[in-house]
Each structure stands twice: as C-alpha cells, then as structure tokens.
Design a protein around this nucleic acid. Structure first.
Length: 280
DNA sequence: CTATCCACCTGGCGGC
DNA sequence: TGCCGCCAGGTGGATA
C-alpha cells in the first residue's frame, strides 16, 4: 500500500478540495472490500458537510459535521481521486465508492479490494478492531530515539520486522523499512535487541528523514498508487535500495541484495549494512 | 513472544 | 498467443 507518505500525500491533496463541501450523494458500487462497506453509509453521509480530513496511521479520516468519520484505508492498491469537475469523470473498473460534492467528485478505486471504507463516530474508535493495536505515529513527539531504543531492547526479532510492526510504530511499510535501514547502515536481519543506543538513534533519524522526504516528493508510485490529482509521486526515483536488486549501491557501488523476510522482499547493501555490531 | 503460513483479490510480467 | 507461476506500498488471524 500506500505507506504513510502516500497516505499523507492523499490527505494533503484532498483536504483543500473537499473540506467545507457538502456531500450531495454517495454511491457504493461494490461493498465487498476488506470489510463490507456498511449498507447505511451512503444514506448517512448524504447532505453532510465535510469538516476536516486527517490521517491516523494509514487510515484517512474524513470528519463530517454530525460527528461521524468516514474512514478509508487504501490497502495495497487503493486510490482516492478527486475530480474538480465532475464532468471529467467516467466510472472505471474497480471504482467502488463515488462521492458527489455538487460540481466535484471523489472516487475510491481499489483493484485488489484490500482497502476498507466505513463510518464511525469518535466514541466507536476505541472498539474498532483496526484501531485497537496501533503503535506510535512516527512523525509525532512520542516517537523518538529513546523510545525506539526502549522498543528495540525488548524485541528478539529482526529489526526490519520491528519497524514494520504497526502495533509498535505505524506507517512504515515494506519500502520505507528497507530504505530507512539502508540510511541507518543497519542490516535488516539484525536482531533488534542487539542494536546499540547509537544505532537506534541513527535508525530513528533515518525513519523520520525517509518518511519526511517521501512526503515532500508526493510519495512513491509503483503500480496502482497515484495522487488525488491522478499524477504520480516522485520518491521512487530516490530509492536507494528498494526494487534495486543487482543495481549499484549509491554509497559503495556494490550490488544491492534481495532477501525474503516474513514473506516480504527486503533490499539492502551487504557492504554498507553490516550484520555485525559496529559502534561507530 | 516469535516465526511462518494463510487469507483476502486482481493483474502484470517473464518463461516456456 | 496462451497458460502458469510468481510477484506486488497491507494486515489480521491461526498455528506451532
């Protein structure tokens, strides 16, 4: 999916276009996503003004005037696109939800249907299964080098799986995990509890820096993902290791390696990311 | 607690 | 051209 930078890009992209607008109509064309879109959703959002768009982990929250939140998760292949002029929209394959805002339109398209759309009141957040185990927001104050060191100290599993664990820290997916570990010079298979304080600090900085640079670039566009205006993000051009098997490392020009961890591809430089402890 | 595998689903790509 | 297996920004759940 869209990881944190892509979701943040979507939020920033749609906010100025839909905040303050009124939902004239909502149409559900296929409710069978990761969880079923509630049958009553279309009727419930109708005629409500959109107050604010925000992000929680990889979830997009669209606050409505009557206190409900339209919750959208993009899964692996979800897109949220706004057409400022609804005349320019023609329904396409996998357009599951279309929200009409008078003259403009917002469309949720999701090829693989791993995404999710639902409607919650704020008092229902705590009971919502997918919100229950969310860890720290990586771009918040609560996530810092002291915390990350505390976390790594307590985990006897690979550092990559730790930073990708959404119950620990949210938003770091498969791309940004590889990229952050490369930037920090840490081998993805290192056991988290073996990291030194210095390494944890370096990793903390690398994660924040990587996510922030990716947001600045409008996220990464590989296949399905696109910004709400339909244009591609640019961060994929700045990948240092992800999807760069056998290509030269930007630092040492040796070949980038690919391994599989927990069923996911991991890319790294075997030279720059030493498996062994280094205090530097 | 951890690793592993599975499920959900569609489609693009490379190989034969 | 066609079919087959593998792969893909996620993530909860079952199992050992």
């Amino acid at each position: 999916m869209p990881e944190l930078p892509e979701v943040e890009t979507v939020v920033r992209g749609i906010a100025p276009l839909i905040e303050g607008r009124v939902i004239a109509k909502a149409q559900v064309f296929n409710s069978k996503l990761r969880i079923e879109i509630p049958e009553a959703l279309a009727k419930q959002v109708k005629n409500q003004k959109i107050i604010k768009v925000s992000r929680k982990a990889k979830y997009i929250l669209i606050e409505l005037e009557e206190g409900e939140f339209l919750i959208i998760h993009l899964g692996m292949s979800g897109r949220l696109r706004v057409y400022p002029n609804s005349e320019n929209y023609k329904r396409a394959k996998h357009d599951h939800l279309v929200i009409t805002l008078n003259d403009s339109l917002m469309v949720f398209n999701d090829t693989r249907r791993f995404g999710l759309v639902t409607l919650l009141r704020e008092d229902e957040f705590a009971d919502f299964k997918f919100f229950k185990k969310l860890g720290l927001e990586p771009l918040s104050r609560k996530f810092n080098s002291v915390q990350l060191f505390k976390i790594t100290q307590a985990r006897n599993k690979s550092i990559k799986s730790v930073i990708m664990d959404s119950s620990i820290v949210v938003g770091v997916g498969n791309i940004y995990a590889s990229e952050s570990l490369f930037s920090a010079g840490i081998h993805p298979e290192r056991i988290a509890s073996d990291l030194s304080k210095k390494e944890a600090t370096k990793l903390y900085k690398a994660i924040v820096d990587t996510l922030e640079r990716a947001i600045e670039a409008g996220g990464s566009t590989l296949r399905d993902y696109a910004k709400p205006d339909g244009k591609a993000g640019y961060f994929q051009h700045q990948f240092l290791v992800y999807d760069r098997l056998d290509k030269p490392c930007a630092k040492c020009s040796k070949s980038i390696s690919q391994i599989r961890q927990n069923g996911r591809s991991t890319y790294f430089c075997g030279h720059c990311q030493s498996f062994f402890f280094k205090s530097r």
